[in-house]
Every structure is written in structure tokens, then in C-alpha cells.
């Protein structure tokens, strides 16, 4: 692994070295390092035309982590990868994924990660996903993460997804189906600049009685970038659903937020909040009156907002 690759790995997975616990590191279309543990098994998919891995987590596995970072450092690579997680009943684990692209060539690099989560009964997972790209080449850096979530009775999932820099185009699709008393929390953080585009689509079906979903997106769109945020929540039972889109627009950037709430049950309680606007003038004035110049104040406010 060279310096660029090590840097990418650090940015997307906070990894300096091979991680503890189970892991699979994918580099330029190939699995380059893998480790299973007693309770967490990682196996290559055998299905034709469906590259990727299955991650099988035994019931009641606790306090363990799985790292599955992906790195693309060759220009012009285009791949779709299927990763399926099977999380056993009562397990409690941390899963860290992430994709880093370094593209210094003139061909597009593109990674589409299709992650499917089968969260077992009363299982609890935290899923952290970071996207980052760099490289001076004219080739675009494209990432299209798809996340399919199925949460069984009493199970819960917390998903943190972050894209901070460098990704030219992204289409982020997340769907979830929740059974009785299952819960889902999603926290998205997004920063776009240049001519980047980012599309976020959430569709959540609250099928089970007592299920709940909380989708929160905080984003900053700068320069000439464009973001579109759609959150569809269907309350099909007695349930609670909340979605929130909080965006700062700067320069010539544009942001669209489209909420869609459907109550198919009289006991479904659904809320949507969306706030889009430029940085509040009084926030800039306050920080300037403490001695920062306007550019520093702006940077401080954005950093805090996306923290």
C-alpha cells in the first residue's frame, strides 16, 4: 500500500494500520486484506455478475467491529460492489464502511456500493460511512451508495453518513423497512462545492407497530453545486417518523428539499422539518465582533454546523 492509499484509508476509516476485529479492505477492484473472527465471518460472493462479500454476524455478538473500506486510486475504474450484512439476533456491533477515491487521471472513477442490512431481532448496530475523494485530474469522482435496510422486531440501526470533500457526483439512495418496535436513526452530513451534484433519497416504510424513524440531514452547498434531498416516510402502523433537512446555501449553489409523509394508519405520527437559507447575517456579525474576519467567521460557522 502506498502513501496515497494509506491517506485515503485514514480519511474514510480513521485507520492507520490493519484494524482490530473483522475487516475487508478492497483496493482498485480487489480484496487485498481480510480477516474474519470467531463471531464475524466475511465470505466472497460466488454469484455471477455480483462481486462483493457477505458479512455474517453471529447472534449475541457484542462489542465487536467490522471495517470494510474501499479505495480507488487508479483513474478510470468503474465498479459496482454488493455487500450483504446478516446481523444475528441480539448482536450489538459497529460497522465502519467508507470509500475513498484518488483520481489524478482524465477518466472517470466510479464506485457504486450496494449495501444490504438484515438486522435481526433485538440486534443493535451502528453503521458509519464516510465518502471522500481527491486528485487533480479532469476525470470525475463518482460515488453512488445504495443502502437497503431490513430491521426485524425490536432491532435498531443508527447510520452516520458523511461526504465532506471532493466527490463530483453522488446519488445516495437509502430504503428501509421496519418491523414491530424497530427503530432507525440516520444522520447525514454533506458538503458540496465546485460543480458537484448530490442527490439524497430516503424511503422508509414503518410497517411494524411501535416502529420509529428519525432522518436528519445537515448540509452546506457552496459555489455552483446542487443538492436535492427527498425523504419519503410511510407510516403503515402505529409509529413515529421524523425527517429534517437543514441546509446552508452559499454563492450560486442550489438546494431542493422534498418531504413526503404518508399516514396509512390513524396512529401514525409523522413530522417533517426543512430549513434552507444562507448563513444568518447576525451570526457572521457576532463572530466578527469577537475579532474574526468575514471569511474566518463563515468557515467557523460551517465547520460547527457540519460537526
Amino acid at each position: 500500500m502506498d502513501a496515497i492509499e494509506r491517506d485515503l484509508l485514514q480519511k474514510v476509516a480513521d485507520l492507520h494500520d490493519v484494524p482490530e476485529g473483522a475487516y475487508n479492505i478492497r483496493e482498485n477492484g480487489q480484496s487485498v486484506a481480510r480477516s474474519s473472527t470467531k463471531n464475524i465471518e466475511i465470505v466472497t460472493k460466488t454469484e455471477e455478475g455480483k462481486p462483493g462479500i457477505d458479512i455474517i454476524i453471529q447472534p449475541y455478538t457484542k462489542n465487536q467491529s467490522v471495517h470494510i473500506p474501499v479505495i480507488l486510486s487508479k483513474s478510470g475504474l468503474k465498479e459496482s460492489v454488493y455487500n450483504d450484512f446478516y446481523i444475528g439476533e441480539g448482536a450489538d456491533v459497529l460497522i465502519i464502511a467508507g470509500c475513498g477515491i484518488h483520481n489524478c487521471g482524465n477518466q472517470n472513477s466510479e464506485h457504486s456500493g450496494i449495501h444490504t442490512f438484515h438486522v435481526g431481532k433485538n440486534a443493535k448496530i451502528k453503521y458509519v460511512e464516510k465518502h471522500y475523494a481527491q486528485g487533480e485530474g479532469t476525470g470525475e469522482k463518482i460515488m453512488n451508495p445504495t443502502t437497503e435496510i431490513y430491521i426485524d422486531e425490536g432491532g435498531s440501526m443508527e447510520m452516520e453518513t458523511t461526504q465532506i470533500k471532493g466527490v463530483d457526483s453522488t446519488k445516495r439512495i437509502t430504503t428501509a423497512k421496519l418491523a414491530k418496535n424497530a427503530s432507525l436513526v440516520v444522520k447525514e452530513k454533506l458538503y458540496t462545492h465546485g460543480k458537484q451534484t448530490a442527490t439524497t433519497d430516503f424511503t422508509v416504510d414503518l410497517d411494524g407497530e411501535g416502529s420509529s424513524a428519525d432522518l436528519v440531514s445537515r448540509s452546506v452547498a457552496a459555489e455552483n453545486s446542487h443538492q436535492a434531498f427527498t425523504a419519503v416516510i410511510n407510516g403503515n402502523n402505529k409509529c413515529t417518523g421524523h425527517s429534517e433537512c437543514d441546509a446552508i446555501v452559499m454563492d450560486n449553489a442550489t438546494v431542493t428539499a422534498l418531504p413526503a409523509l404518508t399516514a396509512n394508519n390513524v396512529d401514525a405520527e409523522l413530522i417533517h422539518e426543512a430549513a434552507i437559507g444562507k448563513i444568518a447575517g447576525e451570526q457572521l456579525i457576532k463572530l466578527m465582533s469577537l475579532g474574526l474576519d468575514e471569511a474566518q467567521a463563515e468557515e467557523y460557522i460551517i465547520q460547527g454546523f457540519l460537526k
Binding site: D246, L290, Y300, G304
Partner: peptide
């Protein structure tokens, strides 16, 4: 006084004391 999302009391005091 102005409110900020994500900026802590300590952050503000740090900026203020430079």
C-alpha cells in the same frame, strides 16, 4: 444574543479570548 448550531460555549470563549 445569537444562537449557533454546532458551536459550543467553549468555542465562543476561545474565539473571544483569541
Amino acid at each position: 444574543p445569537v444562537r449557533f448550531k454546532g458551536i459550543t460555549v467553549k468555542d465562543l470563549l476561545t474565539i473571544a479570548s483569541d
